[in-house]
């Protein structure tokens, strides 16, 4: 494997890891606030559809982005109402959100475009085109550094850069701001927040809304960056892999970057090398695809450190009585 191939693999890992990263950070906000969200998959799918559809109709990726975020937000609202207002089971609500998106997107896609549940191919301004960073052209022949800059750092769509910028931003918000302090508190002990005179409901809705926006970006990237349009079930379990990454990262933003890029790399490798011959064993493609899930189970089992979720996670807040 030569250097150029490695760079290509890493480049592909970044592309494939980006939707995971955005979705993972989306889940992080919600779960840190005590709302479990297994509906990331559905929100991404909804966003992918609406961004693809609106971008196809208007020819503007930016309008698509807004529509995508709006679609994901609407499902966030459903999840928020179920988990916060009506104090329902957050897991059941998440399952429902996923099915809702899975059915609804195809239904509407078929009704609008009559293409068997997909949206028309996007081209030109309907997609987020790669951005060439300044000087990339000039240095691309410089060995190693130039290649890295040109192939790995440069040439991604704006959403990739946004996703990476979100990592330090999330860390900063979570650990350096008043909002972050309250958000973490409400996920650990909502009573402490309530007795301090802060509205638990508003905090949690805010968190769930941020989850909607970020998973909206994730879905939009799928349909307008990674691919050129929406295809039925195009998230293909990425929402669950993001969830796995979130557990893997123990609900922390910087490890979330590591976990999602690792999973992105795994996908990139299995795309490029369907069978990996390690001499002793031959790893089939199916194994490579299952690795993120297997890793998550191992993490959950506590064989590599313990993953302790936010203490109030999954429980609706009811004033004690």
């Amino acid at each position: 494997m030569d250097f150029a191939t490695i760079v290509e693999l890493l480049d592909s890992a970044v592309r494939l890891g980006t939707p995971l990263l955005l979705a993972c950070l989306a889940g992080l906000f919600s779960e840190r606030a005590g709302i479990f969200d297994i509906g990331l998959e559905g929100k991404m799918l909804m966003a992918a559809f609406f961004s693809g559809a609106v971008a196809a109709v208007t020819g503007s990726a930016w309008l698509g982005l807004m529509a995508g975020v709006g679609g994901a937000l609407s499902l966030s609202l459903v999840h928020g109402m179920a988990s916060i207002t009506f104090r329902g089971n957050q897991l059941i609500s998440g399952v429902a959100v996923n099915f809702l998106a899975s059915g609804f997107t195809v239904l509407i896609a078929q009704s609008w475009f009559h293409q068997g549940g997909r949206t028309p191919q996007l081209s030109g301004s309907g997609r987020f085109e790669p951005i060439t960073l300044p000087g990339a052209e000039a240095v691309k022949d410089v060995p190693v550094i130039g290649q890295l800059y040109d192939n790995l750092l440069s040439g991604h769509s704006i959403l990739v850069y946004v996703a990476f910028a979100m990592v330090p931003l999330t860390w900063w918000v979570l650990f350096r701001t008043r909002f972050g302090l309250r958000l973490r508190a409400v996920g650990e002990n909502p009573e402490s927040v309530d007795t301090a005179g802060i509205s638990v409901v508003r905090l949690r809705y805010t968190a769930v809304a941020i989850t909607g926006v970020l998973s909206g970006l994730a879905g939009t990237y799928l349909a307008t960056g990674l691919a050129a349009g929406f295809v039925k079930e195009m998230t293909a379990g990425r929402g669950y892999i993001a969830l796995a990454a979130l557990i893997f990262a123990k609900w922390r933003p910087v490890p979330a970057l590591g976990a999602t890029m690792l999973f992105g790399l795994l996908e990139a490798i299995s795309n490029r090398y369907p069978n990996i011959d390690l001499g002793v064993v031959n790893l089939p493609i199916q194994f490579m695809q299952a690795v993120p899930y297997i890793l998550t189970v191992i993490i959950l089992a506590g064989f590599i450190g313990k993953a302790i979720p936010p203490r109030a996670g999954g429980q609706p807040y009811v004033k004690e009585r």
């Binding site: 009506f86 809702l100 059915g103």
Partner: peptide
């Protein structure tokens, strides 16, 4: 499309489960 059934299924889960 038959995905209508998925929507109905989702709504049943939503209302009998989460929005109970």
């Amino acid at each position: 499309p038959r995905e209508l059934i998925t929507v109905i299924q989702a709504l049943v889960i939503l209302f009998t489960g989460a929005f109970d």
